[in-house]
Write a protein that binds this DNA or RNA. Structure first.
Lengths: 194, 194
DNA sequence: GAGCAACCGGAACACCGTCCCGTTTGACGA
DNA sequence: TCGTCAAACGGGACGGTGTTCCGGTTGCTC
């Protein structure tokens, strides 16, 4: 999104890059304490910039969220093939990868809440996250299907959205165990006992 | 909540009852077209009353939603025992009842979106809906567990919330099939093939 | 028909996201 | 080193939404 200044065509101004960094830092901190829906003004205030600046760097809230969690999503995506290689069976790899994805969602207050919506301007967020992760999930699903462990008529996108939805509200109600329900959902993929 | 006037202690004034009716009617209509998150002013305007009036009758949005859907929730609750009696096995009854619950959620735009939140003032809504439906669900679960069809370590509250969550955003994305995922979740309750 | 309390409507307030405009400041060439 | 100018900035203005307050109105009762 930005370039350090070495190669590119039109390097950003130094203060602009500094502000972008400040905003990312402030957002990351506030996301932890107040959730991803924290008011724009708060992020701007904490970063020591004006409200307009945040829009200049991150036109929508989704852009900010993407930027903050980009590397974590990347790590999750890369974990897919690794798990497939290391786990005893593809199904186990799928289980573990989904578990990791759940971890990612649950530890970010309210991330799942916002991941769901298509209607808002969150399509960008949706697009980025899913574009990166759905293929990984699809690979795991295909492997597990081919090994005969699970049914083959469920698409990765569906599964991911289902998992995402199940994680909504997971962190503000101790009686609700998202991980448990996700495990149930994944178990539902297996061929039923008959 | 109100009394027609026959039995009770302190009958409401006629205009108040008229307004409450108007509000319910307006809300029901707008919920269908604009979802349950329709602005308060719109409901008030359509009912031909002031904004304060809506707060007088329904202090929170949850109260309004409860009032609008009260009889449908009731019908759903009553369907539980009926299905248990008519279905071939308790598990099938559970399947059908859950399906009915999903119908209820999906046909109301955005109802599930709001059903999830504990943080807001939606606890009342949560409380009412769940208080009424969880016991029914628990009964079905217990019956299916006793007949040996499903595992017995999943609580009704968990299942209901999971189903509710899976229904979020079901009506604004044709590629997302909540019913399908819920079926998967319910299938996950069965004992795994080994 | 009069009095009173319940009730009403709309304006006022608070909060949030978004956009605009006058000002500042970093980068670069002279 | 210094002047120039576009990029970037900040804070305030705007529109929309939920919530509350207050003066006026209206139904009920005696």
């Amino acid at each position: 999104m930005n370039d350090g200044g070495s190669g590119g065509g039109r390097p950003k101004r130094a203060d602009a890059r500094r502000n972008e960094e400040s905003l990312l830092e402030a957002a990351a901190a506030l996301f932890v304490t107040s959730g991803v829906a924290v008011p724009v003004r708060e992020v701007a205030a904490r970063a020591g910039v004006g409200t307009a600046t945040i829009y200049r760097h991150f036109p929508t809230r989704a852009d900010l969220i993407i930027a903050v969690y980009r590397h974590q999503v990347e790590a999750c995506a890369e974990a897919g093939p690794a798990l497939l290689a290391s786990a005893p069976t593809p199904y186990v790899a799928l289980e573990r990868w989904i578990d990791r994805f759940v971890d990612f969602l649950v530890t970010k207050h309210g991330l799942a809440d916002v991941l769901r919506s298509d209607n808002a301007g969150f399509e960008a967020l949706h697009a980025h996250f899913l574009d990166r992760l759905v293929p990984v999930c699809a690979q795991l699903l295909a492997a597990a299907a081919e090994s005969g462990e699970i049914r083959s008529d469920v698409e990765a996108l569906q599964l991911m959205r289902g998992v995402g939805n199940l994680c909504i509200g997971a962190d503000d109600d101790p009686r609700y165990d998202a991980r448990r329900l996700v495990a149930l959902l994944v178990a539902g993929l297996r061929h039923t006992a008959r």
